[in-house]
Nucleic acid binder design. Structure first.
Lengths: 190, 190
DNA sequence: AATATAAGCGAATAATTATTCACTAAAAAG
DNA sequence: CTTTTTAGTGAATAATTATTCGCTTATATT
């Protein structure tokens, strides 16, 4: 194992996410995390200066991954609606597969753990989404409303959808996915 | 002051809500709450057996108030769309005016503080919403999708809308409210 | 008014939890 | 192979925080 192993960061993150999803941000201790990760408590302090840094780092990592995956396969040549649907599907799939991250991010939203700096950086990651919405509006396909409002609408509905699916345990079939997308699209379309 | 004063419960709840909205559920202590409420820490234990009970009670109270206010002025005689809009507006207004409750409830969603029993009771409060959606579907005005999915969609979008408005600090004008409602309605309508 | 009961207090105590540190094990450098 | 540096350990310590309790003050009861 050379230098601080990337796999160990991943191990710690995975443990923390699992626990937060189960017990909430308020319910986890450094001891819990180390135990879940199968390492000694002291080792956490080799990788992070403390609990605050650990959580901020995890928050930043989740946000980055979430955005990175959203635009996979995005092609500006493609007509808007299918291109948008592609992004929407990327987000939906990712969030369903990484449900713990959804919970974690939600819990962080009003947590004192997350510093203003971390928040600021996370905010900047949203730029591509604004660009996408702007394109749809320029092509007169989307309602001409404050784009922040449209985005929060999309994301809010999506998050609840993800939660609903996750907890209901109902399998998400192709037709159901399409129906859900149309629900969203009907709201946004001009 | 006779018996345990209702006003004192309200005082404690208000203090707790304010703090949770500012610092998150993970960031508050019994000491913080008592200080914010202007009472001694020990007094909290006159009203609640401990932190768990306090938070469960607050959760239950928020849920109840939130539902109670939603159907104010609801009249089954009224045509569906305006009746639905009335409910939608009730919820929007209440959540904007009691933003701390929105945050608190969100934070509680995955918190170990909230017991299964409390959760169960909260769930039952949603019955009137299901009935309302069912009516809209029976009148063929709403999409014929799993009503749980429609409700989570409405609530998810509404919550993010409330957050967006709250943080952007933008005044919510009549036309903006109407536009937002149409956004929601367009999504739901058959 | 005298007594009993309940509310309120906050310093002291008990738990819990973050963090440190002296030490061991492993890896890299020479 | 020896030395140096880095990773890992977990019991011990330091902070933090929930909860208790002996006491005071207020309210109700007789």
């Amino acid at each position: 194992m050379k230098l601080k192993d990337d796999r160990k960061y991943a191990l710690i993150f995975r443990a923390a996410l699992k626990l937060v999803a189960k017990k909430g941000l308020s319910g986890i201790t450094m001891g819990d995390i180390s135990k879940e990760a199968g390492i000694a408590t002291g080792t956490l302090y080799v990788y992070f200066s403390g609990k605050d840094e650990l959580i901020n780092a995890l928050f930043a990592a989740c946000r980055e991954r979430s955005v990175a995956v959203s635009f996979k396969g995005y092609n500006p040549q493609q007509p808007f609606k299918p291109a948008f649907k592609n992004v929407w599907l990327n987000i939906l799939k990712y969030r369903l597969q990484h449900f713990e991250e959804v919970i974690f991010l939600e819990q962080c939203y009003h947590s004192p753990y997350i510093t203003a700096e971390t928040r600021e950086k996370a905010q900047q990651l949203a730029a591509p989404f604004y660009a996408l919405i702007a394109r749809g509006q320029a092509e007169q396909l989307l309602k001409n409303i404050d784009s922040a409002m449209l985005i929060t609408f999309i994301i809010g509905a999506m998050n609840e959808l993800v939660k609903q699916i996750h907890y209901s345990g109902i399998a998400l079939t192709r037709p159901k996915i399409n129906t859900s997308f149309e629900l969203c699209w009907d709201a946004l379309k001009a």
